[in-house]
């Protein structure tokens, strides 16, 4: 469990990092927190010749909120997100999701950009990004930036749209609306584990108490988290009553194309979805009643 040989680079600016990436291309990997990459290197599942450490590029780190858009630097650690008052006020589902990531030591080192670039289908950030239609800001050597919605960025298991020469620099989430109810319900055998199945939901109601917008996302049912667009659309103007919750849960559990493994068979994943969707929608509804 020792990595194969590699050259370590320690750029102090984004330009320097991009130049290195351009130079080494697919032979290089970026290391931020290293919580997945180092394990893969130790198992020799990843054998990069060049490791480009972005920890000394301060511009990549930090949380701010402008025009109801929460912007998080890619190098921001899970723990910093968990502890951020700004995040808690503007997008509390992120705070809740961060609390489910690994354990304290992992959260201290692991970063949101690293998690999204790694695109583990059982990880919290890719799922939350898909739920909230987060926008990825990507830097290129030319000095150009491009932005991409989460659903386009995350393509499959461990696969993103990121080119070998690019760096994910920032993730933006629209702030939750006032009185928007939300819930994140992961199911894992042990505290801190990657989830087996997870459900995330955001719900807003109009003044008459009918559904204005539902966002509903399943994790663990496909190679990426999936949004249930049809159910979301079909729920608009519905009364958010127990009946509706039951119907949505029943419909949601037929979504996706999950696999059997020793943690869960297909049927069990669907059973969990039904339970977790029910739970999530009940919580989200309660959230809408807070104001």
């Amino acid at each position: 469990m020792k990595p194969s040989p590699f050259t370590y680079h320690d750029p102090h600016s984004l330009d320097e990092a991009l130049a290195l990436l351009n130079q080494y291309g697919e032979e290089a990997r970026i290391i931020a927190g290293g919580q997945s990459l180092v394990a893969m290197m130790n198992l020799r599942l990843a054998q990069p010749d060049h490791l480009i450490d972005i920890n000394n590029i301060p511009v990549l780190n930090g949380i701010e909120c402008q025009d109801r858009l929460l912007q998080i630097g890619a190098l921001t650690s899970h723990q910093d997100i968990l502890q951020s008052e700004l995040v808690r006020q503007s997008c509390p589902i992120l705070t809740n999701a961060a609390a489910h990531i690994g354990h304290y030591a992992i959260r201290q080192r692991g970063t949101i950009g690293g998690s999204l670039s790694h695109a583990d289908p059982a990880a919290e950030w890719p799922m939350i990004a898909i739920l909230l239609d987060g926008e990825m800001e990507i830097a290129q050597l030319s000095g150009e930036k491009r932005t991409l919605g989460a659903r386009d960025f995350i393509q499959s298991i461990y696969t993103t749209d990121l080119a070998p020469e690019e760096i994910l620099t920032k993730i933006s989430f629209p702030c939750l609306e006032e009185n928007e109810g939300w819930a994140f319900k992961p199911f894992a055998r042990r505290r801190g584990d990657y989830f087996i199945v997870a459900v995330a939901a955001c719900l807003t109601l109009d003044q008459s108490g009918r559904i204005k917008r539902l966002r509903l996302c399943l994790g663990g049912m496909e190679a990426t988290a999936i949004r249930l667009d049809e159910i979301e659309q079909g729920s608009i103007a519905h009364l958010p009553d127990e009946n509706w919750i039951r119907e949505v849960a029943k419909a949601a559990c037929n979504e996706g194309n999950p696999v059997d493994d020793h943690n869960a068979d297909v049927e069990y994943r669907r059973e969990l979805v039904e339970i977790l969707v029910t739970d999530a929608l009940q919580d989200a509804f309660k959230g809408t009643q807070r104001g």
């Binding site: 055998r189 042990r190 505290r191 801190g192 584990d193 990657y194």
Partner: peptide
């Protein structure tokens, strides 16, 4: 260790 489920204090 990620695959072999040993209970921790939380469980």
């Amino acid at each position: 260790l990620s695959e072999y489920m040993m209970a921790t204090a939380s469980e």
